[in-house]
């Protein structure tokens, strides 16, 4: 299945653009998507902490809803889903 991923702010540079389509196996979840996206040590360092878990400071939405509303990083994905990934952004 294919899902669309939107990157914001500094993650655009890390992932080489603002948007990307990603091919995943059936039944894949957010964690699988992040593993697929982070194909270099630089990318992994930006998204995962030292213990291998996605950083809590990164905000992830599926179809514009927070993944905490579903099953967190275990949230299942389906064909055509849009996932937004936002790094920490400070402004006041």
């Amino acid at each position: 299945m294919k899902v669309r991923v939107k990157f914001f702010a500094t993650l655009k540079e890390v992932f080489g653009g603002g948007e990307r389509e990603v091919e995943l196996g059936e039944g894949a979840n957010i964690k699988d998507l992040l593993d697929t996206l982070c194909d270099s040590p630089q990318c992994r360092q930006k998204v995962f902490d030292d213990s291998g878990k996605p950083k809590t400071r990164i905000q992830i939405m599926k179809n514009r809803l927070p993944i905490q509303s579903f099953d967190g990083i275990n949230t299942r994905l389906e064909e055509g889903d849009v996932v937004s990934i936002i790094p920490p952004m400070f402004a006041g």
């Binding site: 914001f8 702010a9 939405m61 927070p66 937004s84 936002i86 952004m89 400070f90 402004a91 006041g92």
Partner: peptide, 17 residues
């Protein structure tokens, strides 16, 4: 980021989150 865009850089991502 702050040098290039200032704090306006956060508007779009904060609409999203």
């Amino acid at each position: 980021v702050n040098a290039e865009h200032g704090q306006a850089a956060a508007v779009v991502s904060r609409e999203e989150n």
